[in-house]
Design a protein around this nucleic acid. Structure first.
Length: 109
DNA sequence: GCCATGGCTAGTA
DNA sequence: GCCATGGCTAGTA
């Protein structure tokens, strides 16, 4: 596994329940601010094997990018963790976005 | 050539 | 809405 991939996996696993992060955020935390799309690839290929909390990853606008059935599943999983969605389906980032280790491990503020 | 992105710009209201 | 980005995949040669 590439170092970036390994770090990204580590970051994704660190996201607490009830919080969300963006693709770009994970990439930046893993050392490559322009690696958002690599994060997509990692989620698509390693979620199963690494048991990643893939549903806690959303886009920079607070929206769910995963299309189709997966998107439905993602909404359901987030709701189950207390992450509420606006009427337009987006997450209130100011409230639920995780800022990294040691910055609000708990639940929503 | 595709895409589970993201940032920046026009152009409307 | 446009386009830079980056890695992968299908599909041709």
């Amino acid at each position: 596994m590439e170092p970036f991939t390994q770090r990204a996996v580590h970051v994704i696993k660190a996201v607490p329940p009830g919080r969300v992060v963006t693709y770009g955020q994970i990439a930046a935390m893993a050392g490559d601010p322009r690696g958002a799309r690599q994060v997509v690839r990692i989620l698509a290929t390693l979620s199963d094997a690494e048991n990643l909390p893939w549903h806690r990853v959303i886009n920079a606008k607070g929206g769910i990018s995963l299309p189709g059935k997966g998107g439905q599943e993602q909404r359901a999983r987030l709701a189950a963790e207390g992450v509420t969605l606006r009427a337009d389906g987006t997450v209130e980032l100011a409230r639920f976005q995780w800022r990294g280790p040691g910055t609000g491990e708990q639940r929503e503020p």
